[in-house]
Amino acid sequence: MADTVVKIESLVKRYGELIALDHLDLEIKQGEVFGLLGPNGSGKTTTINCLLSLLSYDKGSIEIFGKEMSPVAYDIKKDIGVIMQNVAVYDELTVQENIDYFCGLYITDKQQRAQYVEEAIKFVGLEDFRKFRPKKLSGGLLRRLNIACGIAHKPKLIILDEPTVAVDPQSRNKILEGIEELNRSGATIIYTSHYMEEVEQICTRIAIMDKGRKIAEGTKEELTAMIKNTETIFVSLHELPDDVLKEISALPHIYSTDYTDGTLTAACSGGKHNLIRVLEVLQEHDLHIGRVTTERPTLNDVFLEITGKALRDKEEK
């Protein structure tokens, strides 16, 4: 298909006895911000390294821009921008020199390169740091430099492998905004992360990975629709008699209830007006109602329901 940018079929990668990628299939369309979400060790970076032909693999095929990817596919590589998980810059070169060097690996025309370098510096907001060497930059600024080095040559496909690891919130927002801007300007993005919120925020389609396998794929809405939970209701109450709790549990579309530490939690699966029905029951029994909130299911809930474990995201944050 013409608009397919990346096509991975039945990719298998083994490290001895360990299966790092287990018959992975992915198809990424032009203009997408495709998220690869999964806990550490789920196979995201291995997927990226195979995609870039850095790693050999045991089985499967990889096509980029409709052509088979290989280490010598220079015509494909020239249109790819890579931002590695580990910052890859020269410590002895300045910010501007580093960006110029990496841009020079793709662009030979000096004038065009100078213009691209300038644009990249402005894009990541490093105008005031152009003469700085990487060691003088904070973690966030260093990540921004890493991104500038990867996108300066204006690639059609940009691969970002955990670009916000160990980055302050301000730089993280700047990076995420930048990715959305790059996408708006026409680039297809592959974004790997184990930060659920980031993926939810910027990705138009998401594949969730665990133990080298793709366990779910779709838009955020499609993914959350895959699981039983559609809504969780939280109501603060001074007291909740057992018979009232039973009554709420018996309401249609409510499949789980709990009252702990003065908060009623009711998990709903489908249906409409679940909150109203819960509140009506509570009012009928003259119970004093405090704070009322509802939560839509997150990707973490999706991961939790499919794998029985949580993404590490919440623990780390």
Binding site: A88, L105, Y106
Partner: peptide
Amino acid sequence: SPLGARKCCSPTPK
């Protein structure tokens, strides 16, 4: 090195 990996992704022949 990360630098080596990054360079291998570029279209500059090894």
